[in-house]
Design a protein around this nucleic acid. Structure first.
Lengths: 345, 345
DNA sequence: CAGCTCCATGTAAGCGCTTACATCAGAATC
DNA sequence: GATTCTGATGTAAGCGCTTACATGGAGCTG
């Protein structure tokens, strides 16, 4: 592996020497910005190819103050809805010759802050973030360093916090409305941990305010916050079912937990949707491959990822302001939720 | 956003001036390598904090020829087994102060090659790759640029292609052996596209050679290659079931397709495992949340991701050779596969 | 007290690019 | 033929770090 002499990659200087031009000309050929005599160009290109010259983005970035790097920070990849989002972002960035730095915060603001600082040190040109919930210090850090950022998965409604998202409240409302319209009143909620997840918080708020709207009081025993794991959803459902008056419907603020809940019903011999309706959130591909098929709220994860990257790149290229986008969500009615049966209440 | 004057981040020079030391001393304080007088150190640290100085990795990398960047290239994030792998890699890199460049190749060697070149331009210190199937040119490109790489998800058995993986053949063999031991002889295979996926190829080879070992001839109608989608698995199963003599067992080379297959059985009223046994591969979290629970081969995705990153970083730090690791896999017996019933044959 | 060590710090030359500015040959103008 | 213009190219000063080497003062030694 190690040669006798220290290894040195070819530099533009080497290319320049061999092509008998200056490094400036090599740079011009490579960037194709300024016109270069076709003969010279050809000569340079030949030498570049001959030596498999690879441009040094570190040096280039240092000189131009443009790294062609974008930072993407998500809370987890385990929930495949974020994976779909990340993949779409990466693809969009890639297609514009940007490279993605990936950070997984694991729902920890500390961890996220560390990632952001690290990414800024690497001179990312922009950041794509999940949710808006972070200390003011973190926002200052980005502003101070003039790093544009865009928030995803949560619509901020604030000029100074541009976002590409859907409306979590509205989306959760679609699910809850469905249940109310079908006659359900004793409705449980299973959702993510609201103290570290503002998307879950908004969905929970929608749940609570819809209850209030219908003159129902909040029953804390009907609300379970837990991790994004099938097993957590299952356990939450188990607790709900063991109540003297179990809910007739459950709104799960994500499909992972919904599938956990569904599984528990099956294990407990509780029929879905006859005895209890379950409604999910995300519309994961798996949701049509469980029994019964999951009624859920479709969220445009991939589109959001793509748009976030495109929008931030457009901003970098044109200086156009980063404005917020709100994408629609749709309730996908399948079989896991239905009308309240008389015998259930 | 835009100030009157062009924005300039604080540089080490600014810090040096204000702390009345040279940039060399600032650098020494920041890196903590060379001893610095405690008073001087404190003074510098104060100024650093006061101005929220952020180190410039581009400049630092240019000077040291070490970017603290690692490239991670996977075929997809949609199959959550790769997501788990990627997340573990990222976490391990993060914990050693490395940053991950993420590339998703979508099973395209062209795309992968582009990513690799781009990553080399960004001066990644190492690459973590999926599978060993790529043109010699791509390997040359990495070697020419002295970028160490490690192959994952496939054990190469070659010194010059270090890998952190499990043995796909062995693992697939575990599944097949289980079926043989339970009396199955007409066994179908559903797997990924072997022309773009050498992991799938190895699993298919194991399937074929186990058939041969048992004196069985390969029936092409019993083999389906398709994408990593539930729906693709479902369709493949549909075709199998519509045969005049459907297989009594199916080996699915990944859980996604296995779950698709399972779903199709349910839809077609074919009981699993009574009428047909289904065995998966990956042991995704979802596999215990489907009905019946999936018998599958557990692969150490997260551990592999972590080890790949750690091993490559150790190599960078110590120069220790990158040697290959083979991790064990285990067959997890649940309910979707069972003994051949007499009436089935 | 000359000579030596040792430690903390400074000096300055890069790292591999970009780009403002200078240069220069040839074409065009008068 | 002198002047001006134009287009292609070169020159060289950075970009913000690191680090080999130089420096200089303090503390020892004999």
């Amino acid at each position: 592996m190690t040669k006798g002499v220290a290894f040195r990659r070819k530099t533009m200087r080497d290319i320049a020497r061999e092509a008998r031009v200056s490094t400036a000309t090599v740079s011009r050929v490579l960037n194709g910005s300024v016109p270069v005599n076709p003969e010279t160009r050809k000569r340079v290109e030949q030498v570049v190819r001959k030596h498999h010259f690879v441009f040094d983005s570190l040096a280039g970035g240092l000189a131009t103050r443009r790294s062609r790097l974008i930072g993407l920070i998500i809370p987890t990849l385990i929930n495949s809805i974020y994976a779909a989002f990340a993949q779409a972002s990466q693809a969009a960035a890639q297609s514009q010759r940007y490279t993605v730095l990936l950070g997984v915060s694991e729902f920890s603001p500390k961890q996220e802050e560390r990632l952001i600082e690290q990414f800024i040190a690497h001179r990312v040109e922009a950041l794509i973030l999940t949710g808006a919930d972070r200390p003011a210090r973190t926002y200052q850090q980005m502003r101070r360093n003039q790093v544009p950022f865009i928030i995803t998965w949560k619509s901020t409604g604030r000029e100074d916090l541009p976002s590409v998202s859907f409306d979590n409240r509205l989306a959760a409302g679609q699910a809850m409305r469905f249940l109310f319209e079908r006659g359900h009143r004793r409705i449980g909620l299973i959702c993510g941990r609201t103290e570290v997840n503002d998307r879950a918080r908004e969905r929970r708020e929608a749940y609570e305010s819809m209850l209030k709207e219908h003159g129902l009081s909040l029953n804390p025993g009907l609300v379970h916050e837990c991790d994004f794991e099938f097993e957590a959803g299952r356990r939450a459902m188990q607790k709900m079912l063991s109540r003297r008056a179990p809910p007739t419907a459950i709104f799960c603020a994500n499909d992972i937990q919904a599938i956990g809940a569904l599984t528990q019903c099956r294990a407990a011999g509780v029929r879905v949707p006859e005895e209890v309706s379950i409604i999910g959130f995300d519309d994961l591909p798996i949701s049509t491959f469980v029994e019964p098929q999951l009624t859920t709220v479709n969220v445009p994860a991939a589109e959001m990822g793509r748009l976030a990257a495109e929008s931030v790149i457009r901003h970098l290229a044109t200086g156009a302001p980063l404005d917020s986008i709100i994408l629609p969500t749709t309730l996908v009615i399948r079989s896991s939720a239905g009308a309240l049966r008389s015998e259930a209440k």
